[in-house]
C-alpha cells in the first residue's frame, strides 16, 4: 500500500521531515519555520566525546527534539515509539502504513543504499519518512534526496536498529491529530526563547555560545599537541559537521536567518528582519571560517600562525553570536 505523499527535498533532514509530514496533514509550515519553532539552532563542542577518534562538535540540537518541540508548540498530537526487538519495530511500521499514516524514522546513514557511498558513515541521527510498503520494499521520502526512493526490508531494519551513539532503537514518530486553529505566533515566541536560553545560559564551557570561545582556544593547541595528520583531521571534522549534506551549509545559520525573516512576516515584529540579516552575516563568517580551514587541511599545515588566525576568526564569531542572542532575547 502506498500513501499519496508529497516529497520535497529540503536542506536539513529533521526539520525537512517535520515540514513534509505536517504539510501532509494540511499545516502550511516551511522548513525554516519548523527549524526555528523546534529550536533547532545550537552549538556544542565536546573534546572528551570522541567519534572515530575526533572530538564531537554539533551545530544543532539533540536529534528528535525538533519534531517533538514543533508538535508541542503547535498543539499537534503526535506519538513516538522505540523498540527492543527488530521484528516488532518493523511490524509496527507496516501497520502504520496500512492505517494510512506516513511515519518518520530515525536511521543510520551507513545502511541507506540509495545514498552515494562517499556520504555513508556511521551517523545515526538521520531522518526520513516511510510512506508505503509493497512486497518487502518500502517507499522512502528522504529530504536530502531529489526524488522519492525505495529501500529493502533488510536494509531499513538495519538502518533503524543501528548501534552506537545516538542509538535510534527503531525510533519512529507520526502525527495523530491536528487542531483546527494553529497558533503560529505563540509557537514562534517559544522557539526563539528556547534558542536564546540554550545558547546563552549553559554554565559549562561545552555548550552554547561559550563553546565557540572554548573551541577557539582549543584550536590554538592543535598544532602544538597533535601530530599534523591528527590536527588537520580535527579541523576537517569541524567543517564536515558544518557544511556536509543535510545542514544547509554554514552550520544551520542560514536556515535560522530564513526562519527569522519568515517570523517577521508572520508576527509583524519588524526587529526580526534586522536580526535575520545579522544572522546571515554570522553565517557568512562561518562560511569564511570553513573556507580558510579547508585551505589548511589541504596544505596539511601545522603552521602555528595559520591556526591562531583561525582561532581569532572563531573568537570574532563568538562575539558576534553573543551580541546577536542578547539582541534576540530583547525582542520578546
Amino acid at each position: 500500500m502506498i500513501i499519496p505523499f508529497e516529497h520535497k527535498s529540503q536542506a536539513h533532514c529533521e526539520s525537512g521531515v517535520t515540514s513534509n509530514l505536517l504539510k501532509h496533514y494540511g499545516v502550511p509550515i516551511s522548513e525554516p519555520m519548523a527549524f526555528g519553532i523546534g529550536g533547532g539552532l545550537f552549538f556544542g563542542h565536546l573534546p572528551f566525546v570522541k567519534v572515530n577518534g575526533v572530538p564531537g562538535t554539533t551545530y544543532r540540537i539533540y536529534p528528535g527534539q525538533i519534531f517533538n518541540n514543533v508538535c508541542k508548540r503547535l498543539h499537534i498530537k503526535s506519538d513516538a515509539e522505540r523498540f527492543r526487538s527488530v521484528e516488532t519495530g518493523m511490524n509496527r511500521l507496516t501497520e502504520n502504513i496500512q492505517n494510512n499514516i506516513p511515519t518518520g524514522c530515525q536511521v543510520s546513514v551507513f545502511y541507506l543504499p540509495f545514498l552515494p557511498e562517499v556520504f555513508r558513515f556511521h551517523f545515526n541521527a538521520h531522518n526520513l519518512v516511510i510512506f508505503g510498503e509493497e512486497d518487502g520494499f518500502y517507499q522512502v521520502s528522504d529530504p536530502v534526496m531529489d526524488d522519492k526512493c525505495i529501500i529493502r526490508y533488510e536494509d531499513l531494519a538495519k538502518a533503524r536498529f543501528a548501534k552506537g551513539m545516538p542509538e535510534p532503537r527503531g525510533r519512529m514518530y507520526y502525527i495523530k491529530q491536528v487542531p483546527q486553529h494553529i497558533d503560529m505566533k505563540g509557537a514562534i515566541k517559544k522557539g526563539i526563547k528556547q534558542t536564546c536560553m540554550f545558547m546563552k545560559s549553559p554554565p559549562v564551557p561545552w555548550f552554547g555560545v561559550n563553546a565557540i570561545a572554548f573551541l577557539s582556544k582549543q584550536i590554538l593547541k592543535y598544532p602544538i599537541k597533535l601530530e599534523p595528520r591528527k590536527a588537520t583531521l580535527y579541523l576537517g571534522n569541524l567543517i564536515r559537521m558544518q557544511e556536509e549534506i543535510g545542514t544547509g551549509g554554514a552550520g544551520f545559520r542560514f536556515l535560522y536567518a530564513a526562519f527569522l525573516q519568515e517570523a517577521a512576516k508572520e508576527t509583524g515584529i519588524d526587529g526580526l528582519n534586522e536580526l535575520s540579516s545579522r544572522m546571515t552575516g554570522i553565517g557568512d563568517q562561518w562560511r569564511n571560517f570553513a573556507y580558510n580551514t579547508a585551505r589548511i587541511c589541504k596544505a596539511r599545515s601545522t603552521d602555528v600562525v595559520s591556526y591562531s588566525e583561525l582561532s581569532n576568526q572563531l573568537y570574532q564569531i563568538y562575539e558576534a553570536e553573543k551580541f546577536f542572542y542578547n539582541e534576540l532575547s530583547k525582542v520578546y
Binding site: 536542506a11 540509495f114 552515494p116 556536509e244 544547509g248 551549509g249 525573516q261 535575520s276 540579516s277
Partner: peptide, 27 residues
C-alpha cells in the same frame, strides 16, 4: 549519484529563497 544540496540564500532584495548547489570546494 550525489543529490543536489538545498541551500537557503538571499536574493538581491535580501529576502530568502531556496536554491540548489552541486557542491563546494571546502566541503
Amino acid at each position: 549519484k550525489a543529490p543536489q544540496k538545498v541551500l537557503y540564500v538571499t536574493d538581491n532584495l535580501g529576502s530568502y529563497t531556496q536554491t540548489n548547489s552541486a557542491g563546494w570546494e571546502a566541503e
